[in-house]
Simulated assay, not measured.
Amino acid sequence: MTDNANTPRNLIINADCIDAMRSFDRGTVDFILTDPPYVTRFRDRQGRTVANDDNGRWLRPAFNQMHRVLKDGGFAVSFYGWNKVDLFMDAWKAAGFRVVGHLVFRKRYASSSRFLRYEHEQAYLLAKGNVSLPDNPIPDVLDFPYTGNKLHPTQKPVEALRPLIEAFTKPGELVLDPFCGSGSTLAAAQQLGRDWTGIELDGNHSRTAGKRLAFRQHSRAAA
């Protein structure tokens, strides 16, 4: 199913998200929910890393394309690295997004311990143009169940993502995740009866997401 020839639905694209989104039509995505690299050179206990987490060159062009494909009056939720918030904020504002909310995801465990025990994740709620208030605003603190990171080194729990999709979309609308990883956003959208599109640079992760969603994936040569 496609909204039109250039904005795919219910498809996972194995490509650089900037290149992929350039082929989408302007203003055809209803909601964006994404967990981009935090630009922190992340490496988990098993030695797994995240593509493009060693640089921030992609930030401005990626969010510029997200703003372009999002409908006027649409929302985006982006996770970010707290110690690189200046880079993310610069990219969001340069793209034209307005920051309208902040979300904290409360963990029952510490992902790491250094100066503090790090027991939360965080995201900003971004808006494009003149937006309407949601009918049922959700809390800005949400629980974050432990996934075990079995499918991806920074796997997000579907249970924490569903309230966001439910609050900011209606059934049948299109949810985009340009950094879809193992497909948690896509699974949450699918469970709620929304259409979805995922883009993932890493071929292994895009295949994992494809199996998880039980849908075909589309491969493009990554730049």
Score class of each variant (00 low, 15 high):
Pro153Val: 02
Trp92Met: 15
Ser219Cys: 10
Ala167Trp: 13
Arg212Val: 10
Asp53Glu: 04
Ala188Asp: 09
Phe42Arg: 00
Ile138Gly: 09
Ala222Asp: 05
Gln155Tyr: 03
Arg216Cys: 12
Ala51Arg: 11
Gly129Lys: 11
Asp53Arg: 11
Val158Pro: 06
Gln217Lys: 13
Pro145Glu: 04
Asp90Pro: 13
Arg117Asn: 13
Ser219Val: 09
Thr28Ala: 15
Pro178Gln: 05
Pro163Glu: 01
Tyr118Pro: 01
Arg45Asn: 14
Glu173Asn: 07
Arg45Asp: 12
Asp135Val: 10
Arg207Asn: 06
Ile18Val: 10
His218Arg: 04
Gly203Lys: 00
Leu164Arg: 00
Leu59Ile: 14
Leu164Asp: 10
Gln217Gly: 07
Leu103Gln: 04
Val99His: 08
His218Ala: 04
Ala76Gly: 02
Phe144Ile: 01
Phe79Met: 04
Asp90Gln: 07
Phe179Cys: 00
Pro163Asp: 01
Gly203Ser: 00
Gln65Pro: 11
Ala123Ser: 00
Ala167Thr: 09
Thr208Met: 03
Tyr109His: 05
Gly193Asn: 06
Ser206Met: 00
Arg216Asp: 15
Glu121Thr: 07
Gly101Ser: 12
Gly198Ala: 03
Asp19Tyr: 08
Leu174Asn: 06
Asn130Asp: 12
Met66Val: 03
Glu119Met: 15
Tyr109Trp: 03
Val77Cys: 15
Val85Met: 07
Gly193Ile: 01
Ser182Asp: 03
Asp86Phe: 15
Ala160Met: 09
Gly27Pro: 08
Asp135His: 12
Phe63Met: 13
Ile138Ser: 00
Tyr80Lys: 08
Ala76Ser: 13
Pro134Gly: 00
Asp143Ser: 10
Asn149Ser: 00
Thr197Leu: 06
Ala188Cys: 03
Ser78Arg: 15
Lys107Tyr: 07
Asn6Lys: 12
Asn130Ala: 10
Phe88Thr: 11
Arg207Thr: 07
Glu159Ile: 01
Phe31Gly: 10
Thr7Arg: 02
Arg207Pro: 13
Thr197Met: 04
Ile18Arg: 01
Leu126Met: 13
Tyr109Cys: 02
Glu200Pro: 11
Pro153Asp: 04
Ser132Asn: 15
Val39Arg: 05
Ser113Asn: 09
Gln190His: 05
Gln191His: 14
Thr208Val: 07
Thr40Asn: 12
Phe97Thr: 09
Gln217His: 10
Glu166Ile: 03
Asp86Thr: 15
Arg9Pro: 12
Ala214Leu: 11
Thr28Val: 14
Phe31Met: 14
Arg48Cys: 05
